[in-house]
Design a protein around this nucleic acid. Sequence first.
DNA 1: GTCTATATATGGATAGAC
DNA 2: GTCTATCCATATATAGAC
Lengths: 203, 203
Amino acid sequence: MTINISTEDKIIDAAKKVFLQQGYSGARMQDIADAAGINKALLHYYFRNKDKLFELIFLQCTQKMIPTINSVFDSDEDIFNKIRQFVSTYIEMLSANPYLPMFIANELSKNPEKVIKMIMTKEGDRPHFNKFIKDIQSAIEQNIIEPIQTVSLFINIMSLCIFPYIAKPMMQFFLKLDELEYRMILEQRKQEVADFIINSIKK
Amino acid sequence: MTINISTEDKIIDAAKKVFLQQGYSGARMQDIADAAGINKALLHYYFRNKDKLFELIFLQCTQKMIPTINSVFDSDEDIFNKIRQFVSTYIEMLSANPYLPMFIANELSKNPEKVIKMIMTKEGDRPHFNKFIKDIQSAIEQNIIEPIQTVSLFINIMSLCIFPYIAKPMMQFFLKLDELEYRMILEQRKQEVADFIINSIKK
DNA sequence: GTCTATATATGGATAGAC
DNA sequence: GTCTATCCATATATAGAC
């Protein structure tokens, strides 16, 4: 049986799909209407214009993952477990939303001011990166891990998690990997990346 | 004194700037004409259409860096020095072309078939990644570095080098870093990243 | 709320004068 | 080679019937 989905939800789902894959400037209102199984006029009836619709989708996407991440940051595991947990939950979430990293990075790089204003205006959860960075700092002071620039380590962790999604076609092309092979590699990375990081920083 | 730059070169320079920052779908022929100090009609006189102009720029950009990279891959340094050299020359080149990673990753992700066809059709140098991967493999067999999936290590190295450029606005936003601070971090990474990698894999 | 038809704006491309 | 003017396709947005 088919559940009755409201037109608004159909539009949101469709818009999410199109915007995430095509980005703002590549997305066509017609494509969104088609994907939602309605016509353009109805799109404008529900969401006045492309900008408004985009803003909704963008904020919804960026907010969605924050609570899960924060629950990791806020836990009182030791630094190694925290890194392990962060890497595996983050990669897990990205595998469920593979277009998200490219989408966000791209919009942010095309139009930094507009996007940042959008985020700042709408209040909501923020990722507790500071908490994470403080934990790293404190682990260094307690002599648990090698001294390293915390900011630099943070960038490394994010790089190792996110880049394989942003550069998927590039990596597939370079390494001649098909869809399945690449997905298996991403799956393995949930452990490998944490090992790689911890190997590097542990005393 | 001002050197006399041919109109064609002015167009190419302008197109490079606009395409790299805006991507294919975000770039406007008008913007390119403006940046070149000419009008649209003249653009079309030199390069029949947007696609042709884009193809030229894209191929020129992707080819430019290959010889330098290959000279590192082809050298007969040991694996640690090779990693150090690759990381530092690669980051050096990216700092000189900070928009390039986002540009390539984005076009590839928006239109993989088209882009790959473009690359395959035009013959030219290819990066010798295989050589690098074989070197890693052989270092593992000789017991010089920890056993690790070579493909995985390769992805890690690329991630650590490239991601900070793709995600520059995101990282700046998260970490509240201004232009100068971020550029300093990138500069430091020429050493730090190699240390980070080698720390992780050395016996 | 949903549609068809249409207005309006934008951007790529061409014609033709100089 | 370079320009102005214009065309035409595409894309966003609105009007108005049902």
